[in-house]
Design a protein around this nucleic acid. Structure first.
Lengths: 191, 191
DNA sequence: GGGGCCATGTAACCCGTTACATGATTGA
DNA sequence: TCAATCATGTAACGGGTTACATGGCCCC
């Protein structure tokens, strides 16, 4: 889902400035499923404006920078609705942490343990974030989404906790074994 | 994690052609955490070769196209190991399905139900894929990774199953209520 | 006084996706 | 016969990330 559509989505929840849209991606209820930086939001808003999908109202403030408050137009809402009915691409989970664990055989035991624990920490942080953001007055669809996010983090936390010692031990044994093999070969060459 | 590093990773598991590397991203044990197409793999291998991180051996075959079998060099392995110890970026879950459910208020009831069920189907497919690929002889690190992937899909499946009827009903009620409001306004104008 | 928040934008760059190009074999 | 598998690559295009540019206010 491109940034333009994402902006339409955020604006469908209420008027906002580019700055506020960015904040939604960082702190908002679906921050765990999407992201976009200023470098893509501002150009996207510009294009949406020229296409008539959003309108803008300038607000001059003193003491702080001027604002541009964007609103969804009827046409913008229609385009967004159409986008929502188009077949979605597959879900993607991208995790460099998991990649590190997948290739654990190339990582020293001590480093591996610290990688493992920092992953656990990150996940706990994320789930804490969602839990903190959970308010009673959020609409069902948003609570539903946050609940799913929470379920993801909770299951990851549990999995990592349950398997920590076994995984770390197995990898350490493997490392010891391959070192042993290397030694054996050297000793064998001595024969 | 860029495609170049990913290629080093795949090659650290054994020599492979560009074609086979691609297959790893589609069918392999970490296909659920990473992906890359030919259009990025072949150029990446070319660059890795010119940097001395991989070596290549050409195989002429008859009856099918010639192969280029790539192998990791010592230097390539070292670079890959270094990459593994660098601080990982945050995990990302990107889900257009979830986006559709998040913005459910803009989607008709019938369409919403079909979106919901196609999401459930997709998740069942994915978990089935992992279950089918699980073999006893895969190394611990790979089993661990697949197990985590499976845990993700299983919890998503359960969450979607448990909340299906409630979610769909709530959204349908909300739609009915807002239609009611619109009607009331029209009637009010008639007064 | 310094860092962080508010607020908008541009420009260069990198990287990946998509489409195109080629072509024989094998199984349904 | 038609689709899929094997096998490599290029070129254009699009999109997002990063860095740069500006500047006052507010709290510690």
């Amino acid at each position: 889902m491109d940034v333009k559509t994402l902006c339409l989505g955020v604006l469908s929840l209420g008027d906002a400035t580019g700055y506020e849209i960015r904040k939604q991606f960082v702190e908002g209820p679906f921050s765990h499923f999407y992201d976009a930086g200023y470098g893509s939001i501002y150009p996207a808003l510009g294009r949406l404006l020229s296409e008539g999908l959003v309108s803008v109202q300038e607000m001059f403030q003193d003491g702080r920078p001027d604002k541009k408050i964007y609103s969804l137009t009827d046409q913008g809402l229609a385009v967004f609705k159409t986008a929502l009915t188009e077949p979605p691409v597959r879900d993607k989970i991208r995790s460099e942490h998991v990649a590190r664990l997948f290739f654990a055989e190339h990582v020293d035991d001590a480093v591996l343990a610290s990688i493992y624990d920092s992953y656990l920490n990150e996940i706990r942080e994320m789930s804490g974030q969602i839990r903190a953001a959970k308010a009673a007055d959020t609409p069902i669809s948003q609570r539903f989404t946050m609940g799913l996010g929470l379920a993801f983090y909770d299951v990851a936390e549990k999995y990592l906790e349950d398997n920590r010692d076994e995984f770390l031990k197995s990898m350490s044994d493997e490392h010891a074994a391959s070192e042993g093999n290397e030694l054996k070969i050297e000793v064998g060459n001595d024969d």
